[in-house]
Amino acid sequence: MKIIVAIKQVPERDAQVRIAANGKWIDEADLQWAMNEPDAYALEEALLLKESGGACGEVIVVSAGPERVGSTIREALAKGADRAIQILCDDLNGRDALGVARLLAAAIKPENPDLVLTGLQSEDLGLGQTGVIVAELLGLPHATMILHVEKTESGLKVKRELEEGWFQSIELPTPAVLTVQSGGNKLRYATLMGIKRAKTKDLRTVNAAELGAEGTPAVVLDQIAAPKKQKSTQILPGSAKEAAAALVEKLKTEARVL
């Protein structure tokens, strides 16, 4: 099975994000970057599928973004992906979900994969739409929030997460696009050997402009800001011991929940 995994590089989880001077995006200077975690689960599912299917499978990683995205792609190659396509694009944040999906779909289409996997959402924008739109653009069936993928004779059987602890099985033909939910598998670490091998694996770069996938955005992010507080939080100061004692007092006498 030929599997393509679309991954995104996002600011590291604990990174302190500051709003850029133009108020339209975050200040990217001095940020640390990482692989979007749901995409890491999608990559893991792809590697597991390949490993269970004998030697004929291939896992190809595709990612769009500026130069720096290369480091996240190398990480995916070190974990076991066979090769990668990097879509060089310096204005990813100026594109809406359809604009980004157009880039990915244009890069994926000539590969004719059996399966396209991606995380269910990104940790930065959290749009949760890219996989579904890629499916629509490629004319493929899709399923979202997938925890487990099983190959069947006629296609795939997948386990989909529903709300409040419910699940559902879905059968669909290949080729197909799936968005992967976290927790369905255990993420692997790259081995030293894997990191070494990744350096020699094929990483093809293509400029976004060459993909012929430009369009006018239908949706524009005008401005970003710090969220407005929903409640006024009393922060209890002092050492751990002082703060703990103050909290117990507040919970007893003020909130009356003890």
Partner: peptide, 22 residues
């Protein structure tokens, strides 16, 4: 109308507008 949604796992909010026809 401007539509407000959360970004960066809720650390920021963004204000979006529809710019196309339709």
């Amino acid at each position: 109308p401007k539509f407000v949604r959360q970004l960066m796992q809720g650390r920021l909010i963004g204000s979006y507008r529809h710019s196309g026809i339709g």
